[in-house]
Design a protein around this nucleic acid. Sequence first.
DNA 1: TACATTTGCGTAACCAGTTACTTAATAAAG
DNA 2: CTTTATTAAGTAACTGGTTACGCAAATGTA
Lengths: 174, 174
Amino acid sequence: MRNQLLNKDIMNDFLTEMEYVGLTSRLKRLSDSLLYSTKELYKSEGLDIEPNWNLIFILLQENEAMTITEISETLQFSHPAVVKIINKMKKNGHVETRTDTEDKRKQILTLTEKAHKQLPLFEKYWTAGRQTVMDLLEDSPNFLEEFLKIEEKVNQSDYKERTLKNLNNDELSN
Amino acid sequence: MRNQLLNKDIMNDFLTEMEYVGLTSRLKRLSDSLLYSTKELYKSEGLDIEPNWNLIFILLQENEAMTITEISETLQFSHPAVVKIINKMKKNGHVETRTDTEDKRKQILTLTEKAHKQLPLFEKYWTAGRQTVMDLLEDSPNFLEEFLKIEEKVNQSDYKERTLKNLNNDELSN
DNA sequence: TACATTTGCGTAACCAGTTACTTAATAAAG
DNA sequence: CTTTATTAAGTAACTGGTTACGCAAATGTA
């Protein structure tokens, strides 16, 4: 019962404080929640794909062949992240690689026959998923636009830079 | 140069597609970016604290003593996550634990003397950080409110449930 | 009062990302 | 040409979170 009181008491104060302080962890919690839920969806439906693969499927479908670096730049993932995803997709037989004949450092990635065959099925799930995101955003008409603005700001000057600046300003005004 | 063209060509189409498809990974990217940047900030300033500790400092400051479970419920973290954070904070000498005499399963957490001494310093950084979040949100006046709505929706019915429902609707209408 | 259920917390294994480092191939510069 | 710098991709170690599982203490019930 101590527990109950405590939580109720705190939650209001706390969440207000939290709005700013805990934005990061709330962003993470939401993205994690979507991620795990997507994994579960695919698993329960017996699809042997994983959450972010759709991005790569779409890219390779549109471009036929891309390298690790091209994908990592387009998705703005680190290249080791792409290597990991691609290795899984190769193991599942959805992607194959060959070394570029002109530049032997490059790995050319393409979708396999198996991938192409399964794409229509996958598309159904991705379409339904896109619909889900639209549903979630329904009452939040400015969300994407405003999210983009935040992304841009962070790209221009990151949290550390901004905070150090604020810190200095505060100290000067004391 | 192929790289350049390719990226430019794609980016527009792609990001539109991406708005919905890639929302999850974009959320993760932003939260990761804030996280890493915060870590770097503390590191470069020689503070021996880590990103989410402020949440726990604030809680323990307001409540004096809490258990693992109470914290995990308040922060909506899994309890193993809290255990991990607390272990680090104990190692750093900011938190100490004692077993509850009435219920020996419970670990009572409190801030140490060291923690209390350092709090004013930490507060400066947290205040500056809160200011940074406010700056980032400056041009996005609806963001927090709309974010909250999305969180609530996901809590009511998660991505998987919603997507399966959408999938069935689509199939019925075919 | 004994037995079954629930609760608190700890550990292990996993996950999707990161940075830092290495190797090999290519490009640039002396 | 040879040497130096840059680039592409792979590997390792780490991060902050998760779920799954186990154990011991407390609570509920026959």
